[in-house]
Each structure stands twice: as C-alpha cells, then as structure tokens.
C-alpha cells in the first residue's frame, strides 16, 4: 500500500476548478519531485493534503496509510505524520518560536498517545537540530518567523520538519529565496531525514535543488494535472526544454 495515494482529485477554489483529476502515488522511502509552471496547482495540491480550509474537493480522494485524509482536521493529519513546509511561512508576532515548537510537538505527541517531552529533553533536541541547520539560538527566542529573512523562514520550516519527524514531508519551493550556502545546509537537513520509513514530495522550479535532494520519481504538473512521470532525468529534460511540450499535452 502506498503511503500517499491521490486519486482523481478535483479541487475548486471559489467555484473555480484548479485541480482537474490529479493522481499521484508515493511509497514509503521514496523522494518525489513535482515540477510545473506557475499557477499549475502545485501549492493547491500541497494545501489540500495539509487540510487548509477554503478548498472544495468535488471528486476523488486522498488516502494516507490507507486512511481517508480528507475527513481529518489539519491537526489530526499533522499528528499522523503529514508535514507541509510552506512556500510562504507566515509570521506570528507575540508567539515565541520556542513556545510554539514545544506546544506543537507536545500536541502531536499527545494526539498519538505518547508522553510529552520534558522541558530539558525538548531544549536539548531543539538545540541539536538548530545547530545542524545553522539557526542561531536568538532566532528561536523571537516570535514565529517574525523579522526572519526569506531564507531563515525556510530553514525554520526544515527545523520543524526535523523536530516533528513526520512520515510524509511536502516541501513547497523550499529552495526559493535561499542563497547557495543556505540551500546546501537546508538540503543537507532534508537529506538527513531521508529514511526507508519516510517519504518526501519536493515541489520546485529548479533542477539545482534536485542535485542536492536526488529524487526517485519526477512528476510534471500542468494545468491541474500530472501530465508526465519519470525518473530524475526528466528534471534535466525540463531544464533544457521548458514546459511548452507539456502545456499542449494538458
């Protein structure tokens, strides 16, 4: 059974259909890349998987470990192991990053019936992960993402991913806004999380990220559908030729 099964997904936003019958299977241990032109529906797909309100699924289904994901609240999905690293992480003034991380981690553990982390254990874990991602401690004292640069916000997403240890990681344009060094650090962080028990879906516009995070499968999305699926060489082909050939196919 695939970890994630998206079957014939149709999604409307404000009465306009954006995903027109999208299907996708992701197995445990695999890394999938999704590429596609602006507006093709990549972020929409990631939001629907994470449970963002405002999207209406008119047809199709999403199964996660065989369970109907669409019936779950976003927090339930998170506790079951779905993690979305946002393309545009929001700033939450007045909520200290540390408080947020601890509250979220313990809420997930509680939902799974696991013991909550003690404060020292939690701090130790956060410090380790932050260090490996080159995130300074004083950043963690600020409000969530408040005053973070674009790159720092993205690194903060990877930090959360490492902390929550999800079984499905969706990375929506993790590479946008990262300089070359930051990109390598973040990609190393992601690679460190690769495991036979964990799957990743990496949404990106650039082949460069896929040099660091080498995918098993590459999908091309166009106009709300997956129009082609292949191996990692597909990404190179796209880089060379662009999306025009698929626009017609869609």
């Amino acid at each position: 059974m695939p970890l994630l099964e998206v079957k014939d997904l149709h999604v409307c936003v404000e009465d306009r259909e954006i995903l027109h019958g999208l299907s996708l299977n992701v197995n445990e241990g695999e890394v999938h890349a999704i590429m596609g032109p602006n507006g093709s529906g990549k972020s929409t797909l990631s939001h629907v998987i994470a449970g963002k309100p405002g999207y209406e699924v008119t047809e199709g289904e999403i199964l996660f470990n065989g369970e109907n994901l669409l019936e779950m609240d976003p927090e339930e999905r998170a506790a079951k192991g779905v993690f979305l690293a946002f393309q545009y992480p929001v700033e939450i003034p007045g909520v200290a990053t540390m408080t947020f991380l601890r509250t979220a981690l313990n809420a997930q553990r509680k939902a799974r019936g696991e013991a909550e982390y003690s404060t020292p254990d939690f701090l130790k874990k956060v410090r380790e992960v932050a260090k490996s991602l080159n995130i300074p401690q004083d950043m963690l004292k600020r409000g969530v993402n408040v005053g973070f640069s674009g790159g720092e916000k993205k690194r903060n997403e990877v930090l959360q991913m490492a902390l929550f240890e999800p079984s499905l990681c969706i990375l929506d344009e993790m590479d946008s806004g990262l300089d070359i060094d930051a990109l390598r650090i973040a990609a190393d962080g992601v690679n460190a999380l690769r495991s036979p028990k964990r799957a990743m879906v990496v949404i990106t516009h650039y082949q460069r990220l896929l040099n660091y995070i080498v995918p098993d499968v590459v999908h091309v999305m166009s106009r709300g559908r997956v129009v082609k699926t292949g191996g990692k060489e597909l990404a190179l082909e796209l880089e060379a030729q662009g999306y025009a050939q698929f626009e017609n196919a869609a």
Binding site: G51, P53, A78, V90, I92, T103, Q108, F164
Partner: peptide, 17 residues
C-alpha cells in the same frame, strides 16, 4: 491554519493567537 498544520488543536491554536 499554520498552527493547526503543526498539530495544535483549533482551540489551542486560537488560545495561542
């Protein structure tokens, strides 16, 4: 939504905000 996507139940997320 950001907080809920990180596992905070709705009421708890509201309380934090």
């Amino acid at each position: 939504f950001y907080l809920r996507a990180r596992g905070l139940p709705e009421k708890e997320a509201q309380a934090l905000l």
